[in-house]
Structure formats: C-alpha cells, structure tokens
Computed example of a mutant assay.
Amino acid sequence: MTRSRALAVLGSVIGSVLALTACGPKDSPAAPGADPDALVLRVTQGGGYTAPGADLGRLPLVSVYRDGRVITEGPVVAIYPAPAWPNVQVTRLDDDAVTDLVDAALDAGVTATGDLGSPGLADATTTTITLVTAAGTSTREVYALQEGQGDPALTADQAAARTALADLVDRLTGVQGDGESYEPSAVAALAGSYVADPDLARDPVTWPGAPLPGESVAPGIGCTVSAGAQASAVRSAAQDADGLTPWTDGSATWAVTFRPLLPDESGCADLAG
C-alpha cells in the first residue's frame, strides 16, 4: 500500500488538508476525529426493465463506511408475497480491510474516464460504483456490466476494463463476516395506491409512522421519512407484514415499500431514482 492510497482512504472523511499532513498511525481508516458514517465505497444497480419509480426502493448492493461497516441486503426468502421488511445486514471490517478495498477500487479503474463501450443489449441494468477520496467523489457508471461480458461490440481494452470493474463488484458484494441485522435510525416509506389481491386478502394495518403519502417522488408514489421512535414503530410493524399488506391512516389505504435509510442518508432525496 502506497502512502498516497492510504491518504485517499483517510481523506474520504477528514478532508484533503488533514490527509496531506497525516503520518504514522493516523494513516488508517480509523483516524481520530473521522466521521464513522462517511461513505467510502458504494455499488448500486438500477435501470433495466422495471416499473417507474421502482429504483427508489432499491438498496445499494453494498456500502462501505469509514468505521468499517459494510451494509448489504441479505438473502431474500423465496415466498410470495415477500416479507415487507428488507433483510439488511451489516458486517464490520478492520481498518486494513477497508484500506485494501479502496486500494482495489483504485486498481480497478473507478477513477478512470476511458470509454467502456456499449453492449448491444436492451433493458440491461446500469452498475454505478462510487469511491470517495481526498480528491473528491469518483463515480463510474457501467451499462450491462455483467450482462455485456463477451459482447462482440466491445474492444479488447473496453472488455478488460469492464472485467476489472466486474471483479471489483464481485469482491465488494462478496465481503463476508459475522453479519447482523441493520437497525436504521430512519425509514423511508414509498406509498402508492393499494390494489388488493382477491385471492390473498389482508386486513388493513394502522400506519404508525410519519403521515402518508408524503412528498411526490415519482408518478403515483409519495415518500415520507419516519425517524427515532416512529422509525422503530414502523420497523416493528413492517416485520409482521408482507408485500400485500394494506396500510391505513384512517382516511386512505396505501401499498408501502420500506426503505431503511443508510448512515449517510437523511431523506427521500437520497434515494436512487
């Protein structure tokens, strides 16, 4: 690990001035004074053949934070209807492991700007890799990263660059550890019109959070955020519900998608769209 790359990790949260003057044991992701909630690395996936607004409820594939937390969505039970509350897991890495991941992102070309080509595929997903360093935030967007492997429309250089990024994503999403359930301090609720399934009737559940539907974030979809005690009440109610549960505020009935906010997020504007 070179000093410049260690400083890149450090600078992700405590600023380039401190990063450029840091030395010795402070050249680590756990430097005193660092914001533990500051984002270091993130991989998101969006687009593809989805309904309007569907990306809003998607969690990032992986988020790595300054204090070593790695937050991902865990396995989903293969039942219908699916549980209403997503299985969000948090794993903790030590300082060296976080630094190694940032080093890997730099090696994979996340800060590069070369053309990655355009695979001849329709309705594929776009993978976005975000890296935060002392130099700023680098974002690399790749259309059809997995689906486009081996596409003849790609040059050798484009294919090699994509392979390096795909390997990085595999490494990040494959981080293993003693995971535990993530407990958010705030929860976004994406509310839309409720359409009942006549074969799977559900009794309405009283909504325990901030007023629905909230601010408009997509056609027919509102977003509201519950924090503190309300967030705990929403989480508890959602864990007893499924994707077909109707939620009522006494005057209307809503279908709700739950999106726990991550440590670096504060509101509906932070959701992918």
Results as ranks from 00 to 15, higher is better:
74 G>Y: 03
219 P>D: 11
208 P>H: 07
16 S>Y: 04
76 V>I: 14
93 L>I: 10
222 G>L: 06
196 A>W: 07
157 D>W: 00
94 D>E: 11
180 E>H: 14
96 D>V: 13
88 V>R: 12
235 R>E: 12
124 A>G: 15
74 G>K: 10
245 T>D: 03
165 L>E: 01
46 G>C: 03
24 G>Q: 07
62 V>C: 01
225 V>E: 01
247 W>V: 00
196 A>N: 08
96 D>T: 13
52 P>H: 06
204 P>Q: 08
169 V>I: 10
257 T>I: 08
47 G>M: 06
166 A>V: 01
256 V>P: 01
190 L>I: 08
260 P>S: 07
230 Q>N: 06
49 Y>A: 15
172 L>V: 10
16 S>F: 03
233 A>Q: 04
216 S>V: 12
187 V>W: 01
210 A>H: 00
197 D>I: 10
20 L>C: 10
218 A>S: 13
153 A>P: 01
68 G>I: 06
164 A>Q: 10
126 T>A: 13
204 P>C: 00
219 P>I: 14
140 R>A: 09
67 D>R: 02
220 G>K: 03
248 T>N: 02
90 V>E: 02
223 C>N: 05
153 A>N: 10
123 D>M: 14
217 V>A: 10
135 A>H: 12
114 G>L: 11
240 D>Q: 12
19 A>F: 02
10 L>C: 07
242 D>I: 15
211 P>N: 03
156 A>G: 08
242 D>Y: 08
230 Q>Y: 01
122 A>Y: 08
179 G>I: 06
42 R>V: 08
79 I>C: 14
3 R>Q: 14
270 D>P: 03
191 A>W: 01
198 P>K: 10
203 D>S: 15
85 W>C: 07
140 R>T: 09
147 E>Q: 15
92 R>Y: 09
204 P>N: 04
12 S>F: 02
164 A>W: 03
218 A>W: 01
48 G>R: 02
88 V>E: 09
223 C>M: 04
100 D>I: 07
24 G>V: 11
111 T>Q: 09
69 R>S: 05
38 A>N: 05
176 Q>T: 13
103 D>Y: 09
164 A>H: 07
92 R>W: 07
12 S>P: 00
163 T>S: 11
106 L>K: 05
25 P>L: 04
262 L>R: 00
209 G>Q: 05
34 A>F: 04
94 D>M: 12
228 G>P: 02
102 V>D: 04
85 W>H: 07
190 L>T: 10
14 I>C: 12
205 V>H: 09
272 A>N: 11
77 V>Q: 14
195 V>W: 04
79 I>E: 15
231 A>T: 05
113 T>L: 15
261 L>R: 00
199 D>W: 11
